[in-house]
Computed example of a mutant assay.
Amino acid sequence: MPVALLQGLDKVTARTSTFEAKVGEPVSFGQLTIVVKACQKASPIDPPESAAFLDAQEKRSDGTVVPVFQGWMFASSPALSAMEHPVYDVWVKDCRKSDSKARSSSKQ
């Protein structure tokens, strides 16, 4: 699938954001840059599952870029392979065939 639907949480402000990321194109969430390397969805006859391979890096205030997470995340089991970061949480919600014009939402 060419698009991953991701959700992020800023633990400082307690705001969540849902955003789409095209495979191979970097997206920003706070100080993080996330690149989805692959996004796969189970066939309709299998139990529902979406999984994405993410590469996340943080740009620090001194300009250095630090790797934060690299690996598969599963929509049905976000805790199985979670990104551990003191400020941000990011997890996979779904994989899609196409984006819906960079839809983004926030909750308080």
Rank of each mutant, 00 (worst) to 15 (best):
M1Y: 09
P2R: 08
P2M: 01
P2H: 01
P2N: 13
P2C: 03
L5T: 03
L5N: 03
L6Q: 02
Q7R: 13
D10V: 04
A14G: 09
T16Q: 10
T16M: 08
S17K: 07
S17P: 00
S17Q: 14
T18H: 13
F19S: 05
F19D: 05
E20P: 05
A21M: 05
A21S: 11
G24V: 03
E25D: 14
P26M: 09
P26G: 05
V27I: 07
V27E: 10
S28R: 15
S28V: 09
S28L: 08
F29A: 03
G30C: 01
G30M: 00
Q31P: 07
Q31V: 06
L32Y: 00
L32I: 00
K37N: 10
K37Q: 14
K37I: 01
A38M: 02
A38C: 03
C39Q: 05
Q40T: 14
A42V: 10
I45L: 01
I45G: 03
D46S: 06
P47A: 10
P48A: 15
P48G: 14
P48E: 14
P48M: 08
E49N: 10
S50G: 05
S50F: 03
A51H: 04
A52R: 05
A52Y: 02
A52C: 14
F53V: 06
F53M: 12
L54A: 04
L54W: 00
L54H: 00
L54M: 05
D55I: 01
Q57F: 15
E58D: 03
K59L: 08
R60D: 04
S61K: 10
S61L: 14
V65N: 05
V65T: 12
V66N: 02
V68T: 13
V68M: 15
F69L: 10
G71A: 13
G71P: 12
W72M: 08
W72C: 09
M73H: 06
A75K: 02
A75H: 05
S77E: 12
P78Q: 14
A79F: 12
A79T: 14
A79W: 09
L80N: 10
L80C: 02
M83T: 02
M83F: 05
E84C: 00
H85Q: 06
P86G: 01
P86M: 02
V87E: 11
V87P: 07
Y88A: 08
D89R: 02
D89F: 03
V90G: 00
W91Y: 04
V92R: 04
K93G: 01
K93R: 13
K93S: 04
R96I: 01
R96Q: 13
R96W: 08
R96T: 02
K97H: 00
D99N: 05
K101Q: 07
K101P: 04
A102C: 11
A102Q: 13
R103D: 13
S104A: 13
S105E: 08
S105N: 11
S105C: 09
S106N: 10
S106T: 11
K107N: 10
K107C: 11
K107I: 04
Q108F: 11
Q108W: 05
